[in-house]
Computed example of a mutant assay.
Amino acid sequence: MDGSMRAADWKIGVDIGGTFMDFCALDTRSGQIASLKVLTTPDDPGAELLTGLDLLAARDGLDPASVTRFVHGTTVGINT
Rank of each mutant, 00 (worst) to 15 (best):
M1R: 13
M1H: 12
D2G: 12
G3M: 11
S4W: 05
M5W: 08
A7G: 05
A7H: 10
A7R: 12
A8Q: 13
A8Y: 04
A8V: 02
A8H: 15
D9R: 14
W10P: 04
W10H: 08
W10T: 02
K11T: 05
K11S: 11
K11D: 06
V14E: 03
D15R: 08
D15H: 04
D15E: 13
D15P: 07
D15G: 04
I16H: 07
I16M: 10
I16Q: 10
I16E: 09
G17Q: 09
G18W: 02
G18M: 02
T19F: 06
T19Q: 13
F20K: 14
M21L: 13
M21A: 12
M21W: 03
D22A: 07
F23G: 00
F23L: 04
F23P: 02
C24F: 03
C24Y: 02
C24T: 05
L26I: 09
L26G: 04
D27W: 01
D27A: 03
D27L: 00
T28A: 14
T28N: 10
T28M: 06
R29D: 03
S30F: 01
G31Q: 09
G31S: 09
Q32S: 09
Q32D: 04
Q32I: 09
I33D: 01
I33Y: 03
A34K: 10
S35A: 13
S35F: 10
S35C: 10
L36W: 03
V38P: 07
V38A: 05
V38W: 06
V38S: 08
T40K: 04
T40S: 11
T40G: 05
T40P: 06
T41Q: 09
D43Y: 05
D43S: 08
P45L: 04
G46M: 12
G46H: 11
G46N: 13
A47F: 01
A47E: 09
A47S: 15
A47W: 02
E48F: 01
L49Y: 12
L49I: 11
L49M: 15
L49R: 08
L49W: 11
L50Y: 10
L50E: 10
T51D: 11
T51N: 09
T51G: 04
T51P: 03
T51A: 07
L53D: 02
D54W: 02
D54R: 15
D54G: 01
L55D: 02
L55V: 00
L55N: 00
L56K: 02
L56I: 00
L56A: 03
A58F: 01
R59H: 08
R59A: 02
R59V: 00
D60M: 01
L62A: 08
L62Y: 03
D63I: 00
P64D: 00
P64W: 00
P64L: 00
A65C: 00
S66P: 08
S66H: 15
V67P: 13
V67N: 14
T68P: 03
T68C: 06
T68K: 13
R69C: 09
R69H: 13
V71N: 12
V71G: 13
V71C: 13
H72Q: 13
H72A: 12
G73R: 14
G73K: 13
G73V: 11
T74I: 07
T74R: 12
T74D: 09
T74S: 15
T75S: 11
T75K: 09
T75P: 08
V76R: 15
V76S: 15
G77D: 11
G77Q: 14
G77C: 14
I78G: 14
I78L: 15
I78Q: 15
N79S: 14
N79A: 15
N79I: 05
T80H: 15
T80C: 14
T80L: 15
